[in-house]
Amino acid sequence: MSLSILLAVLSGVGMGYFFLPITILPSLGVIIDIGLMVLLFFVGIDIGKQKGIFGVIKKVGFRALLVPLAVTIGSILGSILVGPMLKMKINEAGVIGAGLGWYSLSSTMLLAEGYVELSALAFLANVFREISALIIIPLVAKYFGELEAIAPAGATAMDTALPVISKATGPQVSVIAFITGVLCTIIVPIILPIILNL
């Protein structure tokens, strides 16, 4: 899958760089808008299928919701703090953190809003987050704490990173990780436009 993603992006870059005129951009905007809707619709289906999620939250305790909240606030705060050092506007830096590791949605949402360079930055930063999360989760679990191991994953805690979290921690933390991933996935399309327009 990772190779397919890399190939899709790189072949698109090659096509755009060598063959296509810049006048095609407005048409691409329409395609991106439609593609984004399709992507969100399918994510909605995935979330809707998790019928037992509220029961799980009730069982684990509503205080477990503090974890996705902390992950979201921490991510946005981190990118906002480093933004000025990279000569970025605070809201533009904030949206990168608000992607919570979900590179496809954050980058296409920014593209749909007309931010091409910011979209590329969101894509790379969130791809880096997903890849490095898989590497550092076991280390965070060992040296910082099991609950903290959920944090690097962000939205990917419900899918890609879940097996790694599960292996590095235990069943209880895995349940909280899954809840965190689902809630982060719901949060991203809500907070991203809000932060962008601050």
């Binding site: 684990v60 305790g61 205080r63 477990a64 503090l66 974890v67 909240l69 902390a70 992950v71 979201t72 606030i73 921490g74 991510s75 946005i76 705060l77 981190g78 990118s79 703090l81 480093v82 933004g83 050092m85 990279l86 970025m88 830096a93 990168i96 953190g97 360079e117 590329a120 930055l121 790379l124 930063a125 969130n126 880096f128 987050r129 490095s132 999360a133 550092i136 965070v140 910082f144 704490g145 609950l147 903290e148 959920i150 944090a151 690097p152 962000g154 209880q172 933390v173 909280i176």
Partner: peptide, 30 residues
């Protein structure tokens, strides 16, 4: 852009770990 992305990633992950560290004492399981 890639360098910027790498730096931002370190900060977003670092602060999210810190955020969970701050709330961990309130999260009790079973």
């Amino acid at each position: 852009i890639g360098l910027k992305a790498g730096i931002i990633t370190i900060f977003t992950m670092g602060f999210s770990i810190l955020g969970v560290r701050l709330v961990r004492k309130y999260v009790v399981l079973e």
